[in-house]
Amino acid sequence: MAERKRRRALLRMGAGISKSARVADRLFLPVVAGAALLTMLLTVFHRQIQEIVSPSPQPSGEQQGPRADVVAYTVDKVPISDPDSPVWDNIPHSRISLADQSIIKPLKLNVPAEPVKVKAAHDGEWIGFLLEWPDSKADTQAIKVKEFRDACAVMITSYPSPPEARFMGTANNPATILHWKADWQIDIEEGFQDLEKAFPNVSVDMYPLLKESIRDGKPPKTVDIPEFARVRLPGTWAGNPVSQLSKASPVEKIVAKGPATITTLPTQDAAGWGRWRDGVWRVVLAKKMKASDGQAGEMVIERGQTYSVAFTVWFGDGGDRGSRKNPSMLHTLYVE
């Protein structure tokens, strides 16, 4: 009798144990998985914060100069408008990751998978950058309402500079920006991409005071709008650099002191050229090391000095323009 009672008690205990064990079993996996996820998230978040506060040099394909993310190597002559020049072959590249733009609305939140490869060189007179990034489609036209061009930019400001200088400089750290635009280049290469390029069947009886400009009507054609008729082109007439029909260079030289402050510099002496081949853009952007617009805040680039630098790419087919872009973090540039 006593034995039976004892056995029953043991059985009850056993049942109790196995019940709590079952609960533990059920919770074990979710708890472990949750903890692992939390740790992972914390690590990623911590890294991102660190990256923003003090950007670490990016791991690069080849070795560069001391502690700089990008080194401008000395060459005899910088090929300022030739991305295919053999001079670039001898210069090691840095792989610069492109980030999202999550500060100034409208944002661009998706990030390209591939980093941009950056090479830099100088010859004492010019400093040039070769940017290379994959882009499945070359978007060189911005005529229709929904067409946006491919573009890229190099931003140079002083070193060291506060983290917020990444966003196109600050009031105390004006940034010099070299901005290459695919549609400007094709305007130079093939002649101004006029209305007929996007709308080949466009038919208009005449444009008031613009008769001369539609002489042949075949795209592409050069600018032949008479000076006195420019009043019909408000942007052109107002002197907007975007609206000028003849462009000297596909690279615009800009000074900026923070978001929404970019200003075209009075002396447009920046150079460059882009070439799209097999799904890759290779673009040279160059400026004179001496600042021709020093008073307006243009950076002077000197040998043996370090600068802060950032790179940005706009993908036209993704609707990129203005703040919808993929900028890099602020990096260091050493001029050999």
């Binding site: 408000p234 942007g235 975007v242």
Partner: peptide, 10 residues
Amino acid sequence: FYNHVTRISE
């Protein structure tokens, strides 16, 4: 509206 020739908005 986007001006096709001046490539800015009006």
